[in-house]
Every structure is written in C-alpha cells, then in structure tokens.
C-alpha cells in the first residue's frame, strides 16, 4: 500500500512537469485568483476593523429625572452593563460634564462661571456598544427604565455603519465566489487536458489491470498540488505588499491614522495563510474530481 501511495504521489508530481505549459497556466491563474482573494480579504478585514473601531466611539447617552440619586444611576448602570450587546458604561457626573464642556467650547471664557455649574442635573451614563446594529434594541430597553428622562443616540451613524459593513461583506462574498468558480473551471480544464494528453497511457493502464484508484489518483494529486502551489506563491506576494502598504501609510498618511486602523500582519496572515492554502487544495481537489468523474470512467 505504501509503495502504491508512493507511486501515485510520484506520478501526480510528474504529471505537473509532463504537462508544463498547462500546469504553468493553471498555477498562474490560481495564483492570480488567490492573490486577489488575499488582497480583498486584507482590505475587507481592515475596513471592518476600522468600522469596529469607529463603532466603539458611537455612544448612547442617558439622562435622568430630577431627584434620581447618583447611587440609583450607578445601579441602573450595572443593569445596563450586564446586557450582552453593551461593551462599556461610563458614569459622567454633572461636574465632569461641565469640565468637559468648558474645555471643548468655552476655553478662557469659562472664568465668568466660577463656582457655578450650569449643567447641574445633567448626570448621565455613556453606553458603548459591541455591535451598533443592536442600538435600537438597547434604546427600547432604556426607555422602559424608571427615572430615565432622555436618551441621546444617533440612529443615522449606527445605520450607515451597519449597512456599509453588510454591503462590504456581500460584495466580498460575491467577488470571492466568482474567483473560486473561475479557479475550479481552470483546474478542471487543465486536468481534462492532462487526461486528453495521456489518453493513451490511461488506456494502457486500464488494459494492464490498474485499479480506479491507481488510474485516477495521480490526476487528483496533480490538481491538489497545482492548487497548493497556486496558493503559496500569492501568499508571499500579498505578505510583502501588506507590510509595505502599512509602512507607507504610517509614514505618508499620518492624518488618516485615526480613520484607518490596520490590523497587524500577524493577525491578517494567521487567518489568510491557512484559509488560502485550504482554498488552493480545495480548488485543486474539486476541479480535478469533477473532471475525473466526468472523463475518466475506468
């Protein structure tokens, strides 16, 4: 059995070199597809990452009726914090609110308000969400809480971010789907060419008494190897491109640093490497399997 497996692998490997031009064309196309997939994945992941970062800055602010004590507000805050969609809850006292207002809007003109707090009674809770799409759910809950006077929130921001996120996912799924279909078609074609080129050899194998496994497996191995090579090459390319883009953006677009949040190379490639390799192997397997089933009835 071991010698058979050795033979099958050796033949699969040799097939690639016997059929150099088609193999090269296939590897080039799979590489192009996986390269685009890699770029696209990196882009989508970073945009999503930036959105997530932006989402954490979208807060719901809750103000309370007169007479609600700080201790009661803290209690309400604890109940809100326990909700699954909530990331964090911060208590902002009236004096904190006034200090912040002075810094942001009054500057040196704040001196006239010495000893006075015009924002008295504006104690509030700032609530940050894990997922902005859950904002309306949270607002409904907050409206039912006793003592709540007003809830400030931005539905527009939440909706735009959620919709953009969704759109990006659909577009990426669509493009990746098309690329995968093209790759399967190309591998399938290359293996079909290989079968046509080696039509005579296959005929001889059948006459000699080779089993289905021995006849078919080298073509399956060929497809898988082509997929693997086609996936490995663009990974290296995407890696270097990604490193350089991060460096370039950090040096030349400092102004965008708050807006654009790049994931680290490690974070991106710890997912991209296994996914791309599995994708390559999967494409090779599916592409060759379809052709073998169709054209290699032993």
């Amino acid at each position: 059995m071991i010698s058979t497996l050795g033979y099958v692998f050796k033949q699969g490997f040799k097939n690639i070199f016997r059929n150099k031009i088609f193999s090269l064309a296939t590897v080039a196309t799979i590489s192009a597809c996986i390269f685009l997939f890699g770029l696209f994945y990196s882009m989508v992941e970073n945009v999503r990452y930036s959105i997530q970062k932006a989402e954490t800055n979208v807060a719901v602010t809750v103000f309370f009726n007169e007479g609600v004590t700080e201790a009661q507000i803290m209690q309400i805050g604890d109940a809100i914090r326990a909700r699954s969609e909530v990331s964090s809850v911060e208590f902002v006292s009236a004096s904190d609110a006034w200090e912040s207002f002075k810094v942001d809007y009054l500057g040196e003109y704040a001196d006239g308000y010495e000893g006075d707090n015009p924002l008295e009674g504006s104690e509030n809770l700032e609530i940050y969400l894990k997922d902005v799409s859950k904002q309306s759910e949270l607002v409904t809950y907050l409206e039912s809480v006793e003592g709540v006077r007003e809830i400030n929130h931005s539905d527009v921001t939440a909706n735009i971010l959620t919709q953009f996120n969704r759109l990006l996912s659909y577009v990426s799924l669509g493009i990746v789907g098309i690329l995968l279909a093209v790759s399967v078609f190309l591998i399938s074609n290359t293996v079909a060419m290989g079968i046509a080129v080696r039509h005579e050899e296959i005929g001889i194998m059948k006459l000699i008494g080779a089993t289905d496994f021995v006849v078919r497996s080298p073509f399956l191995i060929e497809g898988i190897l082509l997929g693997l090579i086609g996936a490995a090459i663009p990974l290296v390319a995407v890696y270097y491109i990604y490193i350089n883009i991060i460096e370039y953006a950090a040096q030349h677009f400092v102004i965008l640093n708050d807006l654009l949040q790049f994931k680290s190379t490690r974070e991106i490639f710890s997912v991209l490497i296994p996914v791309a390799l599995i994708l390559g192997v999967g494409l090779g397997f599916v592409g060759s399997f379809i052709t073998i089933r169709k054209r290699l009835r032993v």
Partner: peptide, 21 residues
C-alpha cells in the same frame, strides 16, 4: 505497440508492474 513514448524501455515494461502495485 501502444508504448509510452516519453519513457525508456525499462520504464515501459516496469509500468505494467507499477500500476498493479
């Protein structure tokens, strides 16, 4: 004849044994 043109004489004969393991 139906021989494998890309292989030598030895490989052509050995082929019949290789494919039956």
């Amino acid at each position: 004849f139906r021989l494998l043109k890309d292989r030598n004489v030895y490989e052509n004969v050995a082929f019949a044994q290789r494919v039956i393991q």
